[in-house]
């Protein structure tokens, strides 16, 4: 086997697959942020149906209907914007996929891992004049920022999925 063949083998069996894996890794994680990806799992059908329901008064539906969130509506609200928030959200996503296909870790009732953090709302709303000048928000500023009072307690429900069992 000549030197040229050996270099070709290195590319075909080493460098090429590595580049392909890196590209697929990055692209797939990016695409996993989309609404279409989340709605691919049938478990999420009631939530997506509510999101897209033009008559629903849920917070998610209003954000979707008015395009207050332009794209990737699920991801924009459900990623916690801590230091590694997006990374943790993606790891959680992989756990969901494993649970969905193996049944391990699947719960009868879908619920958040922890109470929905206000920071996910404040990321967009905090710097708006409308939010800042609202007297109720001003009165509750410390509690809102400290997650003692949830945004959802006044502005909910976040979702009104229909036809849930269990």
């Amino acid at each position: 086997m000549g030197a040229r063949e050996k270099w070709l083998l290195l590319f075909i069996l080493g460098v090429g697959p590595l580049l392909l894996v890196v590209a697929t890794f990055g692209l797939s994680f990016k695409r996993a942020e989309t609404l279409r990806f989340c709605s691919d799992c049938h478990t999420m059908t009631p939530w997506v149906a509510d999101l897209k329901d033009p008559h629903s008064q849920s917070l998610a539906a209003k954000h979707y209907r008015n395009r207050w969130i332009l794209d990737d509506q699920c991801y924009n609200c459900h990623v916690n914007y801590a230091f590694l928030g997006p990374v943790e959200a993606k790891i959680d996503g992989v756990k969901h996929i494993v649970a969905y296909y193996t049944g391990y870790g699947m719960h009868r009732r879908i619920k958040l891992y922890e109470p929905f953090p206000n920071g996910n709302c404040l990321r967009c709303h905090e710097n708006s004049a409308l939010w800042q000048h609202n007297p109720t928000h001003q009165a509750l500023m410390a509690q809102l920022r400290g997650n003692k009072v949830s945004c959802i307690s006044c502005h909910g429900p976040a979702h009104t999925p229909k036809g849930l069992k269990g």
Binding site: L20, A23, T24, S28, A32, C41, I97, Y101
Partner: peptide, 23 residues
């Protein structure tokens, strides 16, 4: 490597939970 390619190309072309899991 060929089998790996078969498992990767669908995810690259069309990312769904299934193709991502296979990848």
């Amino acid at each position: 490597t060929g089998l790996g390619l078969l498992a990767t190309i669908p995810c690259l072309l069309y990312t769904t939970p299934i193709t991502m899991t296979i990848f």
